[in-house]
């Protein structure tokens, strides 16, 4: 479904990704792990069009998407749920969700999608009229995820959705991601919670200093010395 081949990405003159290749198949959860500053967010930004790769290609459903503007990439069915939630804090919860459905095709079906999002996160229905900035951290993350789903994507790019949440909420977020996949969603998941991510993912890859260090099936990776030492504390 998504084919990333030999991507190099720069911030100005500073290179952040070196020759990154990765593929995500339809219906899969692929986990992307790595330490702080490894380039995980940079990779997601390159996929969603916020950054342009200097070389390499990104193909989605058979079409080249590298070099397209972010709004065109959302229209094709990729939703990037950014790091740090990035809610529109001066807007209500309901308006934030509406903004998620901005693309034309999703706008027409926004009521129907909203019901689905409310089913996943019932608390958002109660909070509808509240300013997004007045919600708790967990609720804000739910708004961010709900907003990302409002565009009716086929592929979700989650950037550390469990960051800063209490353990119970972390479990809840992982359960939601699993449910989404069971309903046919494809997921590329960036996470710090390595153990939990590898439990729900089909495949995973480890990014180190802007390069892919390891990639493979999750069961196999859990046995890797590097993963055990660096990320599982064994």
């Amino acid at each position: 479904m998504l084919e990333i081949s030999n991507i190099d990405t720069y911030y100005g003159k500073a290179q952040a990704l070196w020759d990154v290749s990765l593929s995500v198949d339809e219906g899969e959860i692929v986990a992307l792990v790595g330490s702080n500053g490894a380039g995980k967010t940079t990779l997601l930004k390159t996929l969603s069009g916020v950054l342009r790769p200097a070389s390499g290609t990104v193909t989605f459903l058979g079409q080249r998407i590298d070099g397209l503007a972010p709004h065109s990439i959302v229209e094709m069915g990729i939703s990037h749920i950014p790091e740090g939630r990035r809610l529109f804090t001066q807007m209500s919860v309901g308006e934030n969700l509406e903004m998620g459905a901005y693309v034309h095709a999703a706008w027409k079906r926004r009521e129907e999608t909203l019901d689905q999002v409310h089913e996943i996160f019932p608390v958002l229905k109660e909070r509808q009229g509240q300013l997004a900035s007045t919600l708790s951290g967990g609720e804000q993350q739910m708004v961010a995820m709900g907003r990302g789903l409002m565009s009716r994507p086929r592929l979700c790019l989650f950037d550390e959705p469990s960051y800063g949440l209490a353990p119970m909420l972390v479990t809840e977020i992982f359960r939601v991601i699993q449910d989404l996949r069971n309903q046919g969603m494809t997921v590329l998941l960036v996470e710090q919670n390595v153990r939990q991510s590898l439990e729900i993912a089909d495949r995973a890859c480890v990014l180190e200093n802007g390069r892919i260090a390891l990639a493979g099936e999750c069961e196999a990776l859990l046995e890797e010395e590097l993963v055990k030492k660096a990320y599982l504390g064994l």
Partner: peptide, 14 residues
């Protein structure tokens, strides 16, 4: 006005 980059991720042609 609040966050142009995130508006772009929502599909807004900034």
């Amino acid at each position: 006005a609040q966050d142009p980059a995130t508006a772009g991720l929502m599909g807004v042609n900034i």
